[in-house]
């Protein structure tokens, strides 16, 4: 097996909690011991609910935040310690697309200027000049190149996200981290952007880290999927494994919570999570999911103790992945 494009191991990002007089009294474990790999030309989907640490992971990968510990290797080279020039060069290879294209575009800059900005900042002179490159990028994302002089407010939400994508592609990066790129868009427009991202990947062999809370969108985008909960990866595997044969109780609960348009799907199991997300500054011991786990309630005492004492590891971070789940009877 060749070197993966991106290899992340034991990545942690803890935000210190400051008490009186600036003492550190604890830490919010936003990302805790996250490991995964991304192969060239593929997409890794990071899914989970709000507060699971998926966006923080994206920001750390982008080096917008410094990791607390752990390693991030791009093409085998450790990048988590990069500074200054090295970091700048690294930014050419990893770019980001944000959720809200409206707020990540300068309203006073024409979109041509916005797309050209990364090129100019990095001092790159593409063959044929910046203008030609911008026209080419706009064409590639389905925008009309003659609109380069227009301003962001003249574009619809979907078009603005295309601008954001064009800007991310300007430096011909190896990886684009897409943080909820379609969640602010309407369904009909969302499909346009999803297709666009896939077309670009097919044509250029680019890799994506696709961060989203919408499982159905991730299913359409990702080759590999990692499901996160409370800063940890609960389960990771291929798209087929995760969606067709989920093992972890959390993945199963998450999938079963998505309202289905299949009218007769109501007959399948319905798993409902009770309670609320525990505080990431004081997560449960052992398995962080156990306080809401639909299997935990049915486990015998000894097995429960194991969940409380040992942190589960592996592709399926669960001590008892095949345990029966407390399911609610379906009704329609």
């Amino acid at each position: 097996m060749n070197t993966p494009l991106l290899e992340v191991s034991e990545l942690r990002k803890h935000f210190p909690i400051k008490g009186a007089f600036g003492r550190t009294v604890g830490a919010v474990k936003a990302v805790d011991s996250v490991s995964f790999t991304l192969q060239r030309g593929t997409t890794l989907g990071l899914v989970g609910e709000s507060g699971c640490g998926k966006s923080t992971t994206g920001k750390v990968l982008m080096r917008l935040l410094d990791p607390t510990s752990g390693s991030i290797k791009l093409d085998g080279e450790e990048i988590s310690t990069f500074k200054g020039k090295e970091l700048n060069a690294f930014r050419r290879r990893v770019q980001m697309v944000f959720q809200n294209p409206a707020s990540s575009l300068n309203p006073r800059a024409s979109i041509g200027a916005a797309i050209a900005a990364p090129l100019i900042e990095q001092g790159i002179k593409p063959p044929g000049g910046v203008k030609a490159k911008v026209r080419d990028l706009m064409d590639r994302v389905g925008l009309r190149p003659e609109h380069a002089n227009r301003f962001p407010h003249e574009f619809s939400g979907g078009q603005r996200q295309r601008i954001g994508i064009a800007r991310a592609l300007a430096l011909d990066p190896d990886v684009v981290i897409c943080d909820e790129p379609v969640s602010a868009l309407d369904v009909s427009v969302q499909a346009q952007v999803v297709n666009l991202l896939k077309d670009i990947q097919r044509d250029t062999g680019i890799s994506y880290i696709f961060i989203a809370h919408d499982l159905a969108v991730v299913k359409h985008m990702a080759d590999e999927v990692a499901v996160m909960y409370l800063g940890k990866i609960m389960e990771q595997g291929s798209n087929e494994q995760i969606f067709a044969d989920p093992q972890h109780p959390y993945t199963r609960a998450l999938l079963s919570a998505v309202p289905s348009v299949e009218l007769d799907a109501a007959l399948t199991e319905r798993i409902r999570l009770g309670g609320d997300l525990p505080s990431p500054s004081n997560p449960p011991s052992g398995c962080v999911f156990r306080t809401r786990c639909p299997a935990y309630a049915l486990l015998p005492e000894t097995d429960r103790a194991r969940c409380a004492d040992q942190v589960p590891t592996g592709e399926v971070a669960c001590h008892f992945p095949s345990a029966p789940l407390a399911a609610v009877a379906a009704h329609r």
């Binding site: 999803v194 297709n195 359409h220």
Partner: peptide, 22 residues
């Protein structure tokens, strides 16, 4: 709308968006 909606089940891995915007 139905064709552009991603589903959890099924094999259709390409969505059919509605062209244009609202």
């Amino acid at each position: 709308l139905m064709a552009s909606m991603p589903h959890l089940s099924g094999e259709d891995d390409r969505l059919t968006p509605i062209p244009g915007s609202p």
